[in-house]
């Protein structure tokens, strides 16, 4: 499944509506960690309509800033 944000084929279903109503499904991207519900607004979950500022098309996850660095290992 294509991720609605990073557009890679790395998303999979993680939940159906727990009340058994079939009201929606939730998908999760294992690459960029984006998650979305099938009933959300088009501008949120449809890559064609999503604000390009909030897409991650072509961004390498390794290039993201690390806010709290990993400390050196104690010897």
């Amino acid at each position: 499944m294509k991720c609605a944000r990073c557009l890679e084929d790395t998303a999979a279903k993680v939940a159906d509506a727990p009340d058994g109503s079939g009201a929606w499904e939730i998908y999760l991207c294992s690459r960029c960690n984006y998650s979305w519900r099938t009933t959300e607004e088009e501008e949120v979950i449809n890559p064609e309509k999503r604000d390009p500022y909030f897409t991650l098309d072509g961004v390498d996850m390794d290039d993201l800033m690390v806010l709290v660095p990993v400390p050196p290992l104690k010897k």
Partner: peptide, 24 residues
């Protein structure tokens, strides 16, 4: 321990979205 993963953005208290960063 010792791993960071993409997190965000999140609409934060200054009224703007944070960036996407690697977090615990």
């Amino acid at each position: 321990p010792r791993q960071r993963f993409p997190e965000g953005p999140f609409g934060e208290f200054p009224g703007s979205y944070s960036g996407i960063r690697k977090q615990v």
